[in-house]
C-alpha cells in the first residue's frame, strides 16, 4: 500500500479510461495516461485522432462521458460534472495555451496577465503587475506591456498567452497545438519559450505536430489515432522504431 502511494506521488497527472463522444461519434475510447512530475509529454497523431479533445478533457473544457483523473494528488471522478468549487480548483492547477492564443483583445498585454491574477489568486494590483512584468520579461516581451494584443505578431501573442497562464502558478501546463497557427519563424520563438519552460522543470502536456520538439524536448511520447492511444514511450525509440503500423504510416507521412 505504501509503495503504491509513493509511486502515485511521482505522477502529476493520471487519466483513467477517459471516454468521450459527440453525438454518435466516439472521439476517445477509454484513454489512460500517466504523466510524471517535471515530464514533458507530447501527444502526436493524425487530425481527428482525439488529441485536442483529450487535452481539453484534462481541464474539463470538455466534459468526458466517463473516466477518472488524478491531478497533483487530487482524485476526481469525471463521469459527472464537478461542483463549481472543485472545477475552479482543478483549473487553477492547470494552465492552458490555445492554438488561437485567445488573448483578451480589449485589454493591454499587461492587463491580460494582471487581470486573471487579481481574480483567481486575489493578488493586489502592484503584486500582480510585478509578477506580470517579470514573466513578460521572461518571454521577451516586457517592452510590449502597454500594447494591445492585435498590435503583436502571432508568435508574440502566443508568448503573452504563456505568460498569462504561468502567472497563475500552474502545476501542469497544457499546450493545444501552440504553434499550428504560426509560420515556422514565429513558431520558433514560441518553441524556445516552451523549451526554457521545460528546462525549468514544468510538467507539460503538449499536443503538437512539431516532431523535432517532441523528440528533443519531450520525455514521453504518446501516439493517438481514431480515439485510441496506440503507442507510447520514449520519443526517440518510437520515432526510430515504431511498433504499430498505424504509427509508421503517420510518421512517414509527417517526415515526408
Amino acid at each position: 500500500m505504501d509503495t503504491q502511494r509513493n509511486e502515485s506521488e511521482d505522477f502529476m497527472l493520471e487519466l483513467g479510461a477517459i471516454t468521450k463522444s459527440f453525438g454518435k461519434n466516439t472521439i476517445l475510447h477509454q484513454v489512460s495516461l500517466r504523466v510524471r512530475k517535471g515530464e514533458v509529454c507530447s501527444i502526436i497523431g493524425p487530425s481527428g485522432a482525439g488529441k485536442s479533445t483529450l487535452l481539453r478533457c484534462i481541464n474539463l473544457l470538455e466534459q468526458p462521458d466517463s473516466g477518472n483523473m488524478s491531478l497533483n494528488g487530487n482524485f476526481y471522478d469525471v463521469s459527472f460534472p464537478l461542483r463549481q468549487d472543485e472545477l475552479l480548483s482543478l483549473r487553477r492547477t492547470c494552465g492552458m495555451v490555445f492554438q488561437s492564443f485567445n488573448l483578451f483583445p480589449h485589454m493591454t498585454v499587461l492587463q491580460n496577465v494582471v487581470f486573471p491574477q487579481r481574480h483567481v489568486l486575489r493578488r493586489n494590483e502592484s503584486e500582480a503587475r510585478e509578477v506580470a512584468l517579470k514573466l513578460l520579461d521572461r518571454v521577451g516581451l516586457k517592452n510590449k506591456a502597454s500594447s494591445h494584443p492585435t498590435q503583436l505578431s502571432g508568435g508574440q501573442q502566443q508568448r503573452v498567452a504563456i505568460a498569462r497562464a504561468l502567472a497563475l502558478e500552474p502545476k501542469l501546463m497544457l499546450f493545444d497545438e501552440p504553434t499550428s497557427a504560426l509560420d515556422p519563424e514565429l513558431a520558433h520563438e514560441v518553441l524556445d519559450v516552451m523549451r526554457e519552460l521545460a528546462d525549468s522543470g514544468m510538467t507539460m502536456v503538449v499536443v503538437t505536430h512539431e516532431m523535432n520538439f517532441a523528440r528533443t524536448v519531450g520525455d514521453h511520447l504518446v501516439v493517438m489515432a481514431d480515439g485510441h492511444k496506440i503507442e507510447e514511450g520514449i520519443p526517440e525509440a518510437i520515432m526510430d522504431h515504431p511498433q504499430q503500423s498505424r504509427t509508421r504510416q503517420f510518421l512517414s507521412a509527417v517526415n515526408h
Partner: peptide, 22 residues
C-alpha cells in the same frame, strides 16, 4: 469568439467574471 469564453474558463475565472469582464 468561443475561444474568449474558453480562455476565461481555462484560467479558472468564475463564470460571472468571465462574462462581465471578458
Amino acid at each position: 469568439p468561443k475561444g474568449q469564453l474558453e480562455a476565461g474558463q481555462a484560467l479558472g475565472l468564475k463564470p460571472r467574471i468571465t462574462f462581465l469582464r471578458v
